[in-house]
Amino acid sequence: MLNKAQLIGFTGADSEIRTTHKGKKYAVLRVATSRYTKKEGERQDFTTWHQVEIWSPGTVKWLEGRVLAKGTKVYVEGEIRHEQYTDDKGQKHYFAKIVVAGPGHELKSLDRPETNPEPEPGEEG
């Protein structure tokens, strides 16, 4: 089975490090991708926003030492996960996110590739 997503886009906010209630660190990014069409000679742009969670320890550690600033061009490779939550009014909400957590998953800055993290042992990059 294959569950793989690849994105090239721009960060919509600075990267953020969070900690679970059990003390595990992970990073969160919002990434915008876009496509365009031409209709009657006019270009129409369409932007899609993606929530990205990074759980790979080496990449989280790399992000702790720097911030991927808003507007940074990035490459993301991970898997698609679908989640749901119930709000205060009892209404269910569904969303998808890209998760960078396993071998073959990665996050790279395309603006400054020389600063990208090295894969951890057991992670492919």
Rank of each mutant, 00 (worst) to 15 (best):
P57I: 03
R18K: 13
E79W: 11
T11D: 03
P121G: 04
H82Y: 10
D14C: 07
E53W: 11
D14S: 12
K39N: 04
T20L: 01
G104K: 08
K38M: 11
T48H: 03
I98N: 01
V28P: 06
Q51G: 13
Y94V: 13
T19H: 08
R18N: 10
E114C: 09
K61S: 13
E120N: 13
M1Q: 09
G58W: 04
T86Q: 14
P117R: 04
K97C: 06
Q6S: 08
E64N: 06
E16N: 15
V52N: 02
E123R: 14
R35I: 00
P57F: 04
E124F: 15
G12C: 04
A13D: 15
D45F: 01
K25Q: 12
A101Y: 11
E64S: 05
E16C: 10
E83A: 07
E42V: 02
E123S: 09
Q44M: 01
G12N: 05
M1F: 07
K61M: 15
S34M: 09
K97Q: 09
A13C: 09
A13W: 12
V28S: 13
E64C: 04
G71C: 02
V28G: 06
I80Q: 02
D14E: 08
T33L: 00
D111F: 07
V28H: 09
P113R: 01
T48C: 05
L110V: 11
F10W: 07
G78D: 06
T47F: 00
Y36S: 00
E40S: 14
N3P: 14
Y85H: 07
R66M: 07
L2E: 12
E114V: 14
K89T: 11
E83I: 07
K97F: 10
G65M: 08
G90T: 05
A96R: 12
H82N: 14
G104L: 12
Y26T: 06
R18A: 11
G122Q: 03
Q51Y: 07
E123P: 11
A96V: 05
K25M: 12
L107C: 11
Y26I: 06
K24Y: 13
K4F: 00
E40A: 11
P113I: 06
Y94K: 03
E118A: 14
K22Y: 08
D88V: 13
K108S: 14
D88W: 11
K4H: 05
V28D: 12
Y36W: 05
F95N: 05
K73T: 11
K97E: 15
S15R: 02
L68Q: 01
S34I: 00
V31W: 00
P57M: 03
N3Q: 04
K24E: 15
T33V: 03
G122M: 03
E83S: 11
Q91I: 13
D87I: 05
E106N: 15
V74N: 02
V52I: 03
L68E: 01
E64Q: 09
T72P: 14
L68K: 04
L68A: 07
V76S: 05
K4V: 02
N116S: 10
H21V: 15
G78W: 03
E123Y: 13
K97M: 03
Q6G: 06
T37H: 01
G41I: 00
E64D: 04
E42S: 03
S56W: 09
G58V: 03
L2F: 08
E40C: 07
T48A: 00
V60G: 08
A101P: 11
R66D: 05
H93M: 09
L7T: 02
E123C: 10
